[in-house]
Design a protein around this nucleic acid. Structure first.
Lengths: 210, 210
DNA sequence: CCCTGTGAACCTGTTCACAGCG
DNA sequence: CGCTGTGAACAGGTTCACAGGG
C-alpha cells in the first residue's frame, strides 16, 4: 500500500462508518453523498472525494451501497471484530475508559489493565483484572497485543511508555499531557482534552471579537 | 481582531504554553526555537512562524522570553485564572473529568454538574453538587457561563445540546459520538476517543503494509 | 436528470532560504 | 555568529467544474 490516504480522510472514514452503520440499522441500503452530507454536515464533494480514494464504490443515479461500504471502510481502517488492547493507569479516566461501551462496540477490547498502585492490583474492574506494570511485557507477548491506552499520571508517562515500547507495543493512545519520546516505528497519538478545551475557548472568544 | 490565527497554530500555542510554564518553573528565562523544538518535537521553523503570528516577541541571539510568552499566549487563547464551566452527564467519563486536576490547573473550573438520574441528583462529587438538567438555564445565566462539557450518553446528546443552546451557552466540548446540530453562533468541538483509537489503529496498520 | 468520479484550480498551512538584528 | 523573522516556494487537502454512466 504505497498510496496513503490523506489523514483527515481517515478520520472522516470513521465518521462515515458510523453513519453507514446507523443507516444500515434503519434498513437503508443506499445513500447519496448529498444525503450523507446533510447528516454529517460535511460537504458532499468532500465525501465523494474521500470515498473515491477507497475505490469506485458508488452507483451513479442511486448513491452509495451502505452494506458494502461498511465492509470496505472497516477493511481500510484495519478494524476487526476483535482487537485486543491494554490499558495502563487505572485512575479516574482509565476506569471510565474501561467501563465505556464505545470502544467495545467498535471491536476494541481492553483485555488487560495495569497499574502500579498495590491497592488496586488483583482487583477486577469491568471484568478485567488489574495487574502490576511489571506484568506488561509477558502479557503483551502472550496475547500479541499491538495497541495500548496510556492513562497514567503525567509523571509516569514517559517511563511507562518505555515499558510499552520494549514490550513490543506498536501504537500508544496517549491521554497524558506529556510528549512521549519513542522510536519512530512506534506510533503515538495524543488525546488531550485540556488542549481541546483551550481550543474551544479560543473559538468562542475569537468569534466575539471579530 | 480580523486576522484569525491558523487553527493548527492555536493548538500548538497550547503546547508552547505548557512547555513555557514548565521552563519557567525550572527557572529558565529564555529559550530558542531550536531548544523548544527539541522538547516538543516540532520543527523550529514552525515554532518561529507560529510565534511571529502573535507579535515580535523573541530576541535575536538570545531566544524567546519565557515569562512574557506565557502572558502573551494566555491572552491570545483567552485564558484567565478562572473560567467557569458546567458539565452535563455525570457518568463514568463525566466523573473522571470532574475529578481531573488538568482542567483546573489551566483555569477551567467545573462549577456546576448536571444529570437526569434522580439517584445522583443532590449528591456532591468533587465538591460539586449534582443538579437536575432543568436547573441548567438558571445556573448558566446566574453565573454567566459560556462553556459546557457534554458527557451524556449519545441518545441524550442532541436534546441536551438544545437545552444548553437555549440557556445561552456559546461553546460545547462534545464527548459524545453524536453530530450535534446547533445554531452557527454556538461552537461545538468534538472529542471522540473511538475515532482517535481507530485512527491510531490505521496508523499502526498502514505502517506495516507500506 | 440524478448522482458519482475526477482533473484542475484554489487555498491553507508548512518548510525553506535567507535577510537582518543583537 | 546565533537566533529571530519573513517572503517565497512547496505540499497537502479542499472545492470547483464538469464529464459521463445509469
Amino acid at each position: 500500500m504505497k498510496n496513503r490516504l490523506p489523514l483527515p480522510t481517515v478520520k472522516r472514514l470513521s465518521l462515515y462508518l458510523r453513519a453507514f452503520e446507523e443507516l444500515d440499522h434503519r434498513g437503508i441500503t443506499h445513500i447519496s453523498s448529498k444525503g450523507l452530507s446533510e447528516i454529517l454536515e460535511i460537504p458532499d464533494t468532500q465525501i465523494r472525494k474521500d470515498l473515491s480514494f477507497i475505490g469506485k464504490t458508488g452507483r451513479r443515479g442511486k448513491g452509495y451501497p451502505v452494506r458494502d461500504l461498511i465492509q470496505r471502510i472497516r477493511e481500510i481502517l484495519g478494524l476487526k471484530s476483535y482487537i485486543p488492547v491494554i490499558l495502563v493507569g487505572v485512575g479516574n479516566l482509565g476506569s471510565a475508559l474501561l467501563a465505556s461501551k464505545l470502544l467495545k462496540h467498535r471491536g476494541f477490547r481492553i483485555v488487560g489493565a495495569f497499574d502500579v498502585d498495590v491497592s488496586k492490583i488483583g482487583k477486577k474492574f469491568c471484568d478485567v483484572r488489574i495487574q502490576d506494570d511489571s506484568k506488561i511485557p509477558e502479557f503483551v507477548k502472550e496475547y500479541g497485543i499491538k495497541l495500548a491506552i496510556l492513562t497514567t499520571p503525567g509523571e509516569a508517562a514517559q517511563h511507562t511508555a518505555e515499558i510499552l515500547v520494549s514490550a513490543g507495543i506498536s501504537g500508544i493512545l496517549n491521554f497524558t499531557p506529556e510528549n512521549l519520546s519513542v522510536p519512530p516505528y512506534v506510533k503515538v497519538h495524543n488525546v488531550d482534552f485540556t488542549i481541546e478545551m483551550e481550543f474551544l475557548n479560543y473559538l468562542v472568544n475569537a468569534e466575539v471579537l471579530e
